[in-house]
Design a protein around this nucleic acid. Structure first.
Length: 272
DNA sequence: CTTATTCCCTGATTGC
DNA sequence: TGCAATCAGGGAATAA
């Protein structure tokens, strides 16, 4: 599942190879009716063809391709989406949903098994900012912000970490990892954490994301980078999908439970 | 405002 | 072993 570290890895990889390129041709599969938002697929193809890619940004788990003429092509990979770049050939896949041909002969393609991924083309993305909280690796995300946020939440802390309106870019993997690093139970009511524990959680969130970024993300099942390679952080996670295996700190068996509607992995001894 | 639930989709996993 | 039922997951929509 692509979360902030995976999406950022794709952004950094694509930046030097697609910025400056022009999209010469676009195709959208007729077998993915919800993929293109706001526009009919043929209109999307017509409007994006001929555009030059000027920059790539990321907000939370969204990739934003800045095109000439003030247009933005936004992409969300959701569960199984892959954005693949190939210098000479279109990737072979039964799950190919969108292809772009670039003016250097390369292909930029969107492959998505489960069809949860979405993309759109807009000249004003203000609507998006209203549904995304601060970047967890940005300046706006401070211990003070986190403390104020958690004070008005009575549900389990994990639910707040997954809420994109609260913090943008954390998903199931890094919510579990951050809570382990902070030594906090995912079930703890958010508004019962002391200022000190909130400071620890703030640092842990950044640590979990930065460690994963350093390993080019985690490939548990579906994630591949823009070149089609796996990340490396799945080999280093401390709790995620380690149910029954020993905690690296205390040796207790890692437990799994449903918290905030998501499967959650934690050490029952290290996390209180 | 928050929180819980359902839905989308299909391969993988579980259960009998 | 085999087949059906359930699971997994992000986020939108809906309900409370």
């Amino acid at each position: 599942m692509p979360e902030l570290p995976e999406v950022e890895t794709i952004r950094r990889d694509l930046l030097p190879i697609v910025v400056g390129r022009t999209i010469t041709e676009a195709w959208v599969s007729s077998n993915a009716p919800r993929l293109i938002q706001l526009l009919p697929p043929d209109e999307f193809c017509r409007q994006i063809a001929g555009r030059r890619i000027e920059d790539i940004e990321r907000r939370g788990k969204y990739l934003l391709f800045r095109l000439d003429g003030g247009l933005t092509w936004g992409v969300h990979l959701r569960m199984t989406g892959r954005l693949l770049h190939n210098a000479s050939a279109c990737p072979e896949s039964p799950y190919l949903r969108v292809t772009f041909r670039l003016d250097d002969g390369a292909w930029l393609c969107f492959v998505d098994l489960r069809k949860f991924g979405t993309m759109w083309l807009v000249d004003d993305e203000a609507f998006m900012w209203s549904k995304l909280g601060p970047e967890p690796l940005g300046e706006e995300f401070t211990p003070t912000y986190l403390h104020a946020l958690l004070k008005r939440r009575s549900g389990p802390i994990k639910g707040t970490l997954l809420d994109q309106k609260a913090i943008a870019g954390i998903g199931n993997i890094y919510a579990d990892e951050a809570l382990f690093i902070a030594g906090i139970s995912p079930k703890r009511a958010a508004n019962t954490l002391s200022k000190r524990r909130v400071e620890r959680l703030h640092a842990a969130i950044r640590e979990a994301l930065e460690l994963a970024l350093g390993d080019r993300g985690s490939s548990f099942r579906d994630y591949l980078d823009a070149s089609g390679r796996e990340g490396g952080h799945q080999l280093k996670v401390k709790v995620f999908r380690r149910t029954g295996q020993p905690c690296y700190v205390c040796g207790s068996a890692i437990k799994r439970a449903k918290v905030a509607g998501r499967s959650t992995h934690f050490c029952p001894r290290c996390q209180r």
